[in-house]
């Protein structure tokens, strides 16, 4: 933990210096901000400049910062990458947009080949849902798996553009938003309609008749003289069944964003 904090502080210092090198007014003028950081040197200068311009354009358009950070430290792994990414995001004034620090950040640990994609801030968490993170991860991981760093980061940034454009229209990328309910959905609605109309008409039809053979004689019980003469309940045996619980991960029908107590939502793994 201590090591991570030290590493995060060092990285903040490095980032600040890099930003200072590119622009003296980096913090004052949003137009010249740095959005992508590549201390692991995975990108060429041209690639770096291209991706930073693209990230800047999208961030400014939607007022939600789009970042990515690379790191080749061998101590960065699946167990600590989330904490590392969140600490870095909170401690660096260069990350996020505005006071609420709305933004997305992808951290890539190249030594252990792990990643963490996070969203922060009310708008950041609204725009990048759990489903959106799954969808984006699937897209960029196929590039990183082949060590296609530029392709992976470009896919990440263009996907951020799509996700933010959907959120701007009031429909963040979420479960089923990207598809019609399809024939199965219409079939389900039709079957539900048929069942509902059958039940309604059966109830209405049953009201048309009230003639039935009697099978009971409860009205003719001599209740004062009913006697229960013997009662005995004997335990026989117990059956035990184990049924796997349905977890949130099993239920892919839920939408929205799961936000932790620090205000982040995220997804990570290895590639």
């Amino acid at each position: 933990m201590k090591k991570i904090i030290i590493r995060a502080s060092v990285l903040v210092l490095v980032l600040t210096l890099i930003i200072g090198m590119f622009s003296i007014n980096a913090f004052a003028d949003e137009n010249k901000r740095q959005y992508v950081y590549d201390p692991a040197y995975l990108l060429t200068d041209e690639e770096y400049a291209d991706l930073n311009d693209l990230a800047a354009e999208i961030s400014e358009k939607y007022q939600c910062a789009v970042h990515f950070v690379t790191d080749d430290d061998p101590s960065l792994n699946l167990d600590n990458i989330q904490m590392y990414a969140e600490d870095l995001y909170l401690s660096s004034p260069a990350l996020g947009w505005g006071e609420s620090k709305d933004g997305f950040m992808l951290v890539l640990g190249t030594a252990e080949r792990c990643y963490w994609l996070l969203a922060y801030g009310p708008y950041g968490n609204y725009a990048l849902t759990d489903y959106g993170k799954d969808w984006m991860s699937e897209n960029f991981l196929s590039h990183f798996a082949d060590d296609d760093w530029y392709g992976g980061f470009r896919t990440y940034i263009t996907d951020c553009d799509y996700v933010l454009s959907c959120a701007a229209e009031g429909k963040p990328v979420d479960i089923y938003y990207d598809e019609d309910i399809g024939p199965e959905g219409y079939g389900m609605a039709g079957i539900a309609g048929l069942i509902a109309s059958f039940i309604t008409c059966t109830v209405l039809k049953s009201k048309m008749r009230n003639v039935n053979m009697a099978t009971r004689a409860e009205n003719y019980l001599d209740t004062s003289n009913v006697e229960i003469l013997y009662r005995y309940d004997q335990y026989l045996y117990t059956d035990v069944d184990r049924v796997r619980r349905e977890t949130d991960n099993d239920d892919d029908s839920r939408g929205g964003t799961t936000v932790n107590s620090r205000g982040f939502s995220g997804k990570g793994g290895s590639f």
Binding site: N225, V226, E227, I228, L229, Y230, R231, Y232, D233, Q234, Y235, L236, Y237, T238, D239, V240, D241, R242, V243, R244, R245
Partner: peptide, 16 residues
Amino acid sequence: YDVISTSYYDIHRVGA
């Protein structure tokens, strides 16, 4: 896992 235990009983009643 959900562990479901079901206990079975023989319930005897006699009445008039």
